[in-house]
């Protein structure tokens, strides 16, 4: 099975850049961005199996985050991927089939919170300092480190906010950016344990 938008190799990215071709292809209508949350055994082996599945099956991977949950034997992954709904259905079932995954859920289509953390180091002069601080304030960015000519901001928010902040900081001379990738959670009163599992309750697909 091939996705419409396979992950590009570094060589392909360089070739496209040289030819002036877009690196991200235009998204066909039925292709959507999906945020998938996976609860899995808190081991490296389990993590590798999940990531490996994406590469072995040719699924596209945009962002992956992983961290321990309140239960130290369980870790939670948030995966952002792009593809048409049939492919995503495949991804979910393949993920669910892994023995180390406890719960797999596609949050897209339901209401959910999605956040990203960004650390951004920018150079400043006495002239630009005020403007930089003003912009950061608007974005509720926090200074976490300062030197005589650089400042490092901490910023959290939806991806669109992070991207807007980076865009505004660019003219000032960004030295480094570190982004966490997205973490997400469904907006509701229940926990993953109380949700009906869409994968196991597979219904006919037409």
């Amino acid at each position: 099975m091939q996705t419409e938008m396979p992950t590009l190799t570094p060589q392909q990215i360089l070739r496209r850049r040289k030819a002036g071709e877009p690196i991200l292809p235009d998204e066909p209508e039925q292709v959507h961005r999906h945020t998938i949350t996976v609860l899995l055994e808190n081991t490296i082996g389990a993590l590798i199996r999940v990531v490996n599945l994406f590469s072995a099956r040719g699924f596209n991977l945009e962002s992956v985050t992983v961290g321990e949950t309140d239960d130290p034997t369980v870790s939670r992954m948030t995966i952002v991927t792009t593809g048409n709904d049939r492919i995503i259905g495949q991804v979910l079932r393949q993920l669910d089939r892994l023995i180390d995954t406890l719960h797999v859920e596609d949050l897209s289509g339901s209401s959910f919170v999605e956040r990203e953390l960004c650390l951004l180091k920018v150079s400043y002069t006495n002239e630009t300092r005020a403007a930089i601080m003003d912009t950061a304030e608007i974005f509720r960015g926090k200074v976490v480190d300062i030197t005589p000519n650089t400042m490092t901001f901490e910023l959290t928010g939806p991806t669109s906010k992070i991207e807007a902040f980076i865009k505004l900081m660019k003219p000032h001379g960004i030295l480094e950016v570190a982004r966490s990738g997205r973490v997400a959670m469904r907006r509701s009163s229940g926990s993953w344990l109380t949700h009906e599992d869409p994968v196991l309750k597979l219904s006919a697909e037409r």
Partner: peptide
Amino acid sequence: IDPACISKNVPADCAIV
């Protein structure tokens, strides 16, 4: 028996796992 096989290559009108 394998839900990951259903509709992988040919869409199923009625899937029984």
